[in-house]
Each structure stands twice: as C-alpha cells, then as structure tokens.
Design a protein around this nucleic acid. Structure first.
Lengths: 333, 333
DNA sequence: CTGAAAGCGCTTACAG
DNA sequence: CTGAAAGCGCTTACAG
C-alpha cells in the first residue's frame, strides 16, 4: 500500500468529533444526534474511510467469519451445500472462509489450524472419512462452536446435520429389487466413513427383507469421483456372476459407472440398472436421466449455518441432531 | 469463549524466554538455538497455544487472505475456477474469502466493501455484467491488488485473465455452418457484458464469412442458468422462421435449451443442433453429449491467483493481460 | 539472546 | 456528547 490507511481518528478529527463518537456512529448506534451523524458520514465519504472490521473484531473479541471445510468443491453436491451455507450466512452478515480437504486427514488438520489462527467464530465441518480423533478433541478444547455436516464422527457430542443414509440406501435398493434384480452391487465410497456404513446397512436390510443373500464380492469401494466410478465398475464386471444392477454411493460415482458401461458397450437403464445418491442437478440431464435419492445438499448447508449461528449466539443451547429423510427420484436408469 | 486465549506471552513465560524470542520462533526464524526452540515448541503444545495470525497481520500490515468474487457458485464453470484459485493459493499459504454476486451490481459493491473491511491482501473479481464504474475506481484508489477474470470492465488498466470469446464463438458458429445450418440462433447472456459482446462479434464474423445475413430476431438474451436457457428456447421457436441450430452462451444455458427441446418433442443434435460454451464436466454426460467450446476455468482460476500473488509480491510489475485460446470439442449435438 | 516500549486500528469504560 | 487511557495479541526496533 502506498497511501496510508485512513483511520477512525482521522475521520473524527476531520468531522470535529471525538473518536468515541465516531466509533459509535460507524457501528450504527442510534444514540447520536442526526446532525453530528451526518457530519461524520460526510467525512467518511470525503476521506474514503474503510472500516477495519479485523481490528474491531480483535478488540471486541468477536468474529464475523465462519470456516467451512468440505471435501471436494468439484463435486456439485458440495457446490450446492456451499450455496446453502453462503445464503444463510449472508443474511446474518457473516462471511465464509473456505477450505477443501480432498478427503485427506492431514489437510483437514492443517485447515482446522488455519481457521483457528484466523479467528473464525465457528466451523462447519464435513469431516474426511478417517478423521483423526485428536483434531476434533482439540477443537472442542478450544471452545469454538462447531457443527458437523454430511458425515458424523464417533464422539457424538457435537451438533450434526445430515440425512438418513440408511433409509435412503434402503429406498434405492428396494427400488431395484422391485424391478426384479437379485445381483445388486454397491459401488463407491470408503468403508471408514459413517456415511458409507449407513448406506451399507440400508443395502443389507433391503437385501435381507427380500431374502437375497449378501455377497461381499459385490461391494466395491472407490474414491468419490467419476473416475472412481469408472474403475470400480470395471472390477464389478469381472465378477463370476456379474451384477445386473448397481447402487452407487453418489451421483458422481454413478456418472462414472454410466460412462464405463457405455465404454463396455452396455446401455445404462437397459442392460444394467443404476441408482445414484444426491440428486445433483446434472442427474436430470444425464443419458439416460439418472434414478437417484434426493438428499437436499442446499438445505443441509443452510441448516448447518443456522445451527452454527444459534450456537455462536448462545453456546449453551442443547445439542442438535437433525436427520432429514430422503426421497427416491425415479427416472430412466 | 469460556477459557481465555493463550497468548504468546504466556508461552514465553512458560518456556522461560522473552516474548521477542518466542515471536521469532513461531515465525520460523532460524537464528535461534535449537535447545531454546525446542523448549518453546514444547510449551506451545503444553498450553495449546494457537498463533493469532489476525493480530500478527494487523501489526505487520500484511494479509494472508485474498478475496474471490464470482457470480454464481452453482455454475460448475465457477466451481472449477474456484478449484484452480484454491489450489494455487494453498501452495502459497493464502486463504480464500469467497463472495457471490448473483450478477447483481449492488451485491458486488457490498462484497468489495466487506472484503476491504476484512483487509484482504488482494481481490480476484469476476465482474457482474453491468458493473458500476465507481466501485472499480474505488478499489484502485485503495491501492489494493486486483485482477479481473472471465469478464473485463472498460477501464482496462487492471490485470486480466480470460479467454478469447470472439474466437471461441467463431469456432462454434463455423462448426454449425459446416453442418449446413443457415438459421443459427445465439441464446443466453446479457448484452451488457464484454463476454457477451465478444461472443456476438464472433457469431457475426462467422455468419458474414459464410455470406449469411445477420438476423437480430435470432439473438435472445437470458440469465445464465438452465432456466434461462429453457425460456429463451421457447421464444426462439416462436420465430417466423425458427432456427435449425443454437449457439448457447454457456453450457448451463445449453442444458436448459436441450431440456426445453425435449419438452417440445424435439431431439437435440437431430432435429436441432446445439453448441455450448465452457466444456463443463457434465457436458460429457448430457443426453446427447454436448458439443461445446473448451474454456479452461481451472486454468483461469489458477492463473488469476498467480497473477494476483505476483502483484502482491511486487505492485509495480507491468500490467498483465492473458487471453487463452479456446478449442472446439465435437460431440453429438 | 533479553526486556521494555511503542504501535497496528479499533472498542470499552469512565470521569466530566 | 468529549477526552484520555487501557487493552485485544501480536511485531518491530533498540539498547544491553
């Protein structure tokens, strides 16, 4: 910066009032005479004064930013979640500090530190699959408001917003069973995450209810990307009795699976049925349109933000655990 | 916060060194004896000290955050751009402060103020279509490093990274002409933005080169969303001589156009050709796969970040203007 | 390496 | 409303 920053004291001098008065005015207190208020506002314009919220927050030990830690921005599920968070925070005058872990615990640890160093007022964390317990414990010791979203981490004494993955998985698999499938693969994700375990439970429940035996060789883990879906499908087709239907961890994986099916000369929805999870916007447009489970990422984002704001406002409110019920969206696959 | 924050002075006392020494150590200066360094690091762990980067930045008049202002997070083009920015900044130890304008100038003005109030070290701005000149002027007066991305704003004395929209549009329209189309609509966007004007120029150039007369009634503006594309297509079909091909402002609009075509009982790529712009990942998966123009959002993001970091490092480097050349990606539409 | 002091730009509390 | 002072947690500069 070449020019020196204009301070509140400069403004006060220019307007001929005290610094204390100027401070009250910039913070919008109403106990000031209109005439002096106008003088000060005029000086602010004249001098091009910019309020230094950082200094103010530091002095008053408050914060107007919150940290959002997600695993992958390139996943439209998280874009939608981000939109929800963003909208809810905007209204409350909070700003978002964004971090992406790419599902690495090391990165997650580093990000949490960075957020704390930047004095965020709270954190919305979508934990990585194998979060180290130490990090979370550390955050709790810091007394910084924290809400988990999308995935849960074992010590459940923290606010959480997510959806009922088990029920969602049951819906998806029952749908396939209703279409007379008996060899149904479960593809994508890692068995370390709660979101995976719950889906697996739902998958098993649906199979059991239909009297179908569980077959471990039909469960294939993968990274949560299109690429993960592609390679996992290739493995699935090598099975001695290949599946006739695929339940995918999420839509992104399902897109990969569908691409891979086409590579193999198979038509998704005809030769092999596919069900996704999330109902990202692209699911309408895929070829053919993807049958999937609606999981409300935007709502999760906005509710996570609201829970966090509540806790920032009053750290002693009772713990919240909000589980949304998903729906089946039938399309052509 | 219930517990008082542990300060550097607490650490210094605990380790039996001076505050100045402790300060040098947390900042990783190497001029300190290893034995005392270890003592201090041990105390940091013991006390659970968290470095207050905000206080440090304030004292030293620096900043380790940069502001990123985009128009729409829900657009995968911007998600990709965000990934690029994020990656480049991460490496340099910078953090991103995110803001979304939803293409509203009012919101943009508010966001720039917020960013300045939070003392960002610089801003990457993807300007809204009709940016008010005053805001930009104000930023320049603040002497804060600024780079424009994606769209340009008239006074060109600021770093810019974008792609050659005119050339991209020419590629797209020539492609359609090569497939024997003569009635080609240009759908989406608003005529106020440079990115629109340049596409229009390219569109006109391609028409003129082929001896096709320009027809204003085939140019239909819309918001840059799927919904915008849907409604714009409906208008296009009401034309007395309807188009046989559509050049869309971006892929999102193209997806809307394709949905709308299906609603009308028409098959994209067969009854009416469609070309998009951006080559978002979903373009591979759409039904049918979308022919489009590759426009490198991730590269734009990372280069914008790098240019900004350069300028923060040395405010006097010469102005950069980086225009990438797009490619045509032929698929089935 | 230490120790005391000043200052980044603000808010807070208080006597007038 | 004013004015002077203290303090948020750090860095900086300087004498020892």
């Amino acid at each position: 910066m070449t020019s020196k920053r204009v301070t509140l004291l400069d403004v006060a001098k220019h307007a001929g009032v005290s610094r204390a008065t100027a401070s009250l005015i910039v913070r919008g207190k109403t106990t000031i005479k209109d005439s002096t208020k106008e003088k000060v506002l005029h000086s602010i314009n004249e001098l091009g004064y910019v309020y230094d919220r950082v200094a103010a927050n530091m002095r008053s030990q408050t914060s107007t930013t919150i940290g959002l830690i997600i695993t992958d921005i390139a996943n439209p599920y998280y874009s939608e979640l981000l939109v929800g968070v963003h909208n809810a925070l905007d209204e409350a005058g909070f700003n978002v500090f964004l971090g992406t872990t790419f599902d690495s615990d090391k990165k997650q640890v580093a990000l949490i530190s960075t957020m704390l160093e930047h004095r965020v007022g709270g954190v919305i964390l979508c934990p990585v699959s194998d979060s180290s317990h130490g990090t979370i414990e550390r955050m709790r010791n810091m007394d910084i408001p924290l809400v988990h979203a999308v995935r849960e981490i074992p010590p459940l004494n923290v606010d959480y917003i997510g959806i009922d993955y088990k029920y969602g998985a049951t819906l998806a698999v029952k749908h396939l069973i209703n279409h007379h499938h008996r060899r149904i693969a479960f593809i994508g994700g890692t068995s370390e995450s709660s979101a995976w375990q719950l889906r697996k439970e739902g998958y098993c429940t649906a199979l059991t209810d239909a009297g179908i035996e569980f077959d471990q060789s039909l469960v294939i883990e993968s990274s949560l990307t299109r690429e993960g879906g592609r390679s996992a499908l290739k493995k699935a087709l090598l099975n001695s009795i290949p599946p006739t239907a695929i339940f995918c961890f999420n839509d992104l994986v399902a897109f990969g699976v569908m691409q891979s099916l086409r590579d193999e000369g198979l038509t998704p929805g005809k030769d092999i049925s596919v069900v996704g999870f999330d109902n990202v916007k692209e699911a309408t447009l895929s070829n053919p349109p993807l049958t999937t489970i609606e999981s409300f990422p935007r709502t999760i984002g906005s509710q996570a933000a609201e829970i966090l704001l509540q806790r920032i406002g009053n750290p002693n409110t009772s713990l919240q655990r909000n589980i949304l019920q998903p729906n089946l969206i039938k399309r052509s696959t």
